[in-house]
Computed example of a mutant assay.
Amino acid sequence: MSAPTSIVADVSAEVFRRVAGFAATRDILFYLTGVHIVPGPAGRDGQPLRMEASDGHLLYVEEDKSGTAQRELIVRVSKRGQALLRGSNRVKVFDNLAVHITNESGAVLYIEPEQGVVNGTFPQLGHLIGTAADWHEGLGGTVNTQYLLRALAVPGYVRFFSRKDADGRFDPRASVMFVMDGGTTNGGKAFGLIMPVRGAFGPHSAVADMLPRSLLVPDGAKAAA
């Protein structure tokens, strides 16, 4: 590898760590094993860089107001360097594709010994998100509890949004969006998706269909009481 001469990306290590927690660890789709760094849209003032990752079950996106990047990159840091993804440390990618973790003064704390920049194309997210009008506040879908716990591990305050079907009712077969209310400690906007799962009950099952029958009070008995 040639010596690095210029920086092509410089991002918050703390934000990188949060986003990397949603990346795949072992996947035949190798481009899902890293964090996708996306520069702010050209010509849009105040649009910060964002980082995103997905393991196919969850997706998480967070803005990094302190970050800069010349182009899109998929970056990963192996286990040996992950303890340094904290505080005011920085993740820097150089023109020779070397990945370093530095402190805020620029001193190098770690050099990624493996392939830090993944050669691949990260999936476009537009078809997963749709338009903002598609989402309505409430947790209306069926979610895997382990995925939900991972979503709730993001520090801050969370709100949930779900899609509705053609009849105007929440669709339990659709994705659930979680949005960090007020952003994160970084100050940037952040959200994620919990992908849909096939539940045991039909899309419009009544609560009575889901509860133990022995606990249900017959309608007649309730009226008599």
Rank of each mutant, 00 (worst) to 15 (best):
Arg44Gly: 09
Gly116Phe: 01
Gly34Phe: 06
Pro196Met: 02
Ile74Trp: 03
Lys92His: 09
Gly40Asp: 01
Leu29Val: 13
Ala223Asp: 08
His136Tyr: 06
Gly192Asn: 02
Lys222Ser: 11
Thr33Met: 15
Ser2Asn: 10
Gly46Met: 07
Ala133Phe: 03
Ala53His: 00
Ile101Trp: 07
Lys222Tyr: 15
Leu128Pro: 11
Lys65Gly: 08
Ala223Arg: 12
Thr5Asp: 08
Ala223Phe: 13
Gly168Pro: 08
Asp171Lys: 00
Glu14Phe: 08
Gly138Ile: 06
Gln146Asn: 14
Ile101Met: 05
Glu63Asp: 12
Asp181Glu: 15
Ala190Arg: 00
Gly141Trp: 00
Asn144Trp: 08
Val93Tyr: 01
Glu112Leu: 10
Gly138Trp: 04
Gly81Gln: 03
Val77Glu: 01
Ile129Ser: 07
Arg173Tyr: 01
Phe122Ser: 02
Gly138Ser: 02
Gly120Phe: 07
Asp171Leu: 06
Met210Ile: 11
Ile28Trp: 15
Phe161Cys: 01
Ala133Leu: 03
Pro172Ser: 05
Ala69Lys: 06
Asp10Asn: 09
Val118Met: 05
Pro212Ser: 04
Phe191Pro: 10
Gly192Pro: 07
Pro41Ser: 13
His57Cys: 11
Gly67Pro: 00
Gly192Phe: 01
Val158Gly: 12
Lys79Trp: 11
Gln82Asn: 10
Thr102Cys: 01
Leu49Glu: 05
Val19Arg: 07
Ala200Glu: 14
Val19Cys: 09
Leu139Met: 09
Gly156Met: 09
Thr33Arg: 14
Leu125Glu: 06
Glu72Trp: 10
Thr25Ser: 15
Arg213Ile: 10
Tyr147Ile: 02
Asn144Arg: 07
Pro113Asn: 04
Ala132His: 06
Ser78Lys: 13
Met51Tyr: 11
Ala133Lys: 01
